[in-house]
């Protein structure tokens, strides 16, 4: 587009301002984790590493982190298996309209998390009479993770078609061999992208977790939320927050390594 020099400059300026506003609060969290003032008065009064030491010794935070990793890993594995199976099952069938399917896939993303959360809590508690446990939590997380895996795998199927697998069958490979040697390698990067997204979503999830986890299971977001309003814990919470800000670079780096189409997949995260 032929934009005038002035228009270009104004656009660039507006973009820079918006991006600055986006990153300023995150930078503030990082900065405050070294702020000597316990109530985080501004400007900072001095530099300290005391909060980081306290956070390192906080057992609550460490346990919560481990729980979060465990739940995210289990939910991701479950979502990978079921999401792939769903995409494969739906690949050749046209028994009900495409629109129904697309709407069904969008629904868990488009409805607020609180609806998913309370619906599942109600289904577990009131309808099925299942006690909330780590298991119900993983099932709940897997429910929204499946969508991301399904979307990624289905997009890959649509792009590549089925001719490779037909060729494999023609050459005498059984269904299992074909799946192992042809389908799986074909899906590899789509599965990795889906797994990355699922893991990230589950790790960060708090709303559905609140509704489907028992009191004894504390994920990291639940721990943060629980300690957020305690003045004594504020510095530790801030350090944990700072660590999470720094860690958020990791999936972006991995996604970049996974090539371009992952960026698009990350866009449809929820």
């Amino acid at each position: 587009m032929k934009l005038s020099r002035r228009a270009r400059f104004l656009l660039g300026l507006a973009t820079a301002v918006v991006l600055a506003v986006v990153y300023a609060p995150l930078a503030l969290v990082l900065l405050n984790s070294f702020n000597a003032d316990k109530t985080f008065g501004w400007p900072p009064t001095g530099f300290t590493l005391e909060w980081w030491r306290m956070a390192g010794e906080s057992e609550g935070a460490r346990d919560a982190l481990l729980t979060s990793l465990e739940v995210a890993a289990l939910a991701t594995v479950l979502a990978l298996v079921l999401g792939t199976l769903a995409a494969m099952g739906l690949r050749h069938t046209r028994f009900f309209g495409r629109n129904v399917v697309s709407l069904l896939v969008i629904l868990p993303i488009a409805l607020p998390g609180i609806v998913t959360g309370i619906a599942l809590q109600n289904a577990f508690g009131t309808m099925l009479g299942v006690q909330l446990s780590l298991f119900t939590l993983v099932v709940a997380h897997a429910t929204f993770c499946i969508v991301t895996v399904f979307n990624n795998v289905q997009a890959r199927f649509q792009r590549l078609g089925g001719s490779l697998e037909q060729a494999s069958m023609d050459l005498g490979a059984g269904p299992w061999t074909t799946f192992r040697l042809v389908t799986l390698p074909m899906l590899r990067s789509a599965l990795l992208a889906g797994a990355l997204l699922s893991f990230g979503l589950s790790f960060d999830e708090i709303v559905v977790t609140t509704f489907t986890a028992p009191d004894t299971v504390q994920t990291l977001p639940i721990w943060i939320f629980g300690n957020l309003f305690r003045p004594n814990q504020a510095p530790v919470v801030n350090v944990v927050a700072a660590v999470l800000v720094v860690l958020s670079v990791v999936p972006i780096y991995l996604a970049q390594k996974l090539s371009g189409d992952t960026a698009g997949a990350a866009a449809g995260a929820r």
Binding site: L26, D204, A241, V245, S248, A267
Partner: peptide
């Protein structure tokens, strides 16, 4: 634009709590 999406939801909400705090920036 994508990076903040991966930063934890709670952390971002918390960051704004700090911004809006009395005595905050």
């Amino acid at each position: 634009v994508l990076t903040p999406l991966w930063a934890s939801y709670l952390v971002k909400a918390y960051a704004w709590r700090v911004v809006f705090a009395t005595g905050g920036p």
